[in-house]
């Protein structure tokens, strides 16, 4: 069937949504709640388009013969901006120190839509005394910051309730708690997250609400320490993933160069024949024999999407880094190198 988008005719298939067609044809529509392969919920209200004079979410609107869609006009821009600003007003954004800085979808959208006024947030002096206490109670009492599980760091202050993690989790560990503005995405009865730690939620999260748990300072120290021999063990297929994440912050395409820049002395790739973790365990022995380095001074960084390896606390794997953590290291290195941050 044919549909009209911005007065141009495009071909569409049965059961497709307007967003599907736009994505295929390269027409830019911002989305936050939508994520590859997940059910379309239509909750972020950013992918609004105009159909028949009404604003509709393109992610849920099915195509039909002769449909006319406008994706860009003043009204749509206004709606997207207001909804983005409302999200920002509730987002405790301390962007500079956020793990997801420059890789955050909310931040990127705010840049795209030039959000600079925060006229929804009360200013100093506008709320006082008991009222302020009320507000604190109402607004922040239900913030969940949980770092007790071994793999996923959760901070609901940064959460924008897009529901990606709820939908992506194969074990259905997350859900909505409370209602209205007090809504918190969390586990039942706010228990510590206990799952198989596949890491899909951290991959799907558009902001810094769900991130990888790690000891960042120690990792950077070990990488920078000249006495330590840092070995990066790349899991099968991780290269593409890393480059995909890094693509947002650095034009560099040579992964080896990037890793050596980060301070890795040696890069080992797991192939199809030596996929097993057991192979990694031999690395320490091998290097201490051939390179005459103390076993304690060899640091193994297992770079993999399999973040559940962290939970196993294997002595031979000093650190398990996901592609997102590598991207974070690259991001910070770039900043220091360019002199954006003076040491």
């Amino acid at each position: 069937m044919n549909i009209k988008i911005n007065n141009k005719i495009y071909e569409a298939k049965e059961n497709e949504t307007v967003l599907d067609v736009c994505k295929r044809e390269g027409i830019r529509i911002p989305t936050l709640c939508g994520f590859e392969g997940l059910p379309r919920e239509g909750v972020c209200r950013l992918c609004l388009v105009e159909m028949g004079g009404r604003l509709m979410t393109s992610c849920t609107a099915k195509v039909s013969e002769g449909l006319e869609v406008i994706t860009e006009n003043e009204k749509i821009e206004k709606a997207r901006r207001i909804n983005l600003e409302l999200l920002w007003a509730d987002h405790a954004g301390k962007c500079a120190t956020c793990k997801k800085n420059q890789m955050c979808e909310l931040q990127n959208l705010a840049l795209e839509y030039k959000i600079e006024n925060f006229h929804f947030i009360p200013r100093k002096g506008e709320i006082t005394g008991a009222e302020e206490l009320d507000l604190i109670k109402d607004n922040w009492s239900r913030v969940v910051v949980e770092n007790e599980n071994p793999c996923i760091s959760r901070n609901s202050e940064l959460c924008i309730e897009c529901r990606r993690c709820i939908n992506v989790c194969p074990e259905k560990k997350f859900g909505f708690n409370y209602r209205g503005n007090s809504v918190v995405v969390g586990t039942p009865y706010e228990k510590v997250l206990d799952c198989s730690f596949c890491g899909k939620c951290a991959e799907a999260c558009p902001t810094g609400a769900l991130t990888d748990q790690n000891d960042y300072v120690k990792i950077v120290d070990d990488l920078d320490n000249l006495e330590k021999f840092s070995v990066a063990v790349l899991d099968l297929g991780i290269e593409e993933k890393i480059l995909k994440v890094i693509g947002k912050i650095s034009p560099e395409k040579d992964l080896n160069k990037l890793l050596i820049n980060l301070g890795f002395e040696k890069i080992v790739k797991l192939g199809k024949e030596n996929l097993k973790i057991e192979f990694v365990k031999n690395i320490k022995d091998e290097y201490s024999r051939t390179k005459k380095i103390n076993q304690q001074d060899i640091v193994i960084f297992f770079i993999s999407s399999r973040i559940y390896e962290k939970a196993k606390k294997d002595k031979n794997l000093d650190y398990v880094l996901s592609e997102r953590e590598v991207a974070r290291l690259v991001r910070d290195k770039e900043k220091i190198k360019e002199g954006k941050i003076k040491m």
């Binding site: 919920e41 239509g42 909750v43 972020c44 209200r45 950013l46 207001i82 909804n83 409302l86 999200l87 007003a89 509730d90 929804f120 924008i160 309730e161 909505f176 409370y178 209602r179 209205g180 503005n181 007090s182 809504v183």
Partner: peptide
């Protein structure tokens, strides 16, 4: 209910 952005915020 907290489902969509404009109503929740």
């Amino acid at each position: 209910c907290g489902k969509c952005v404009p109503c929740r915020e």
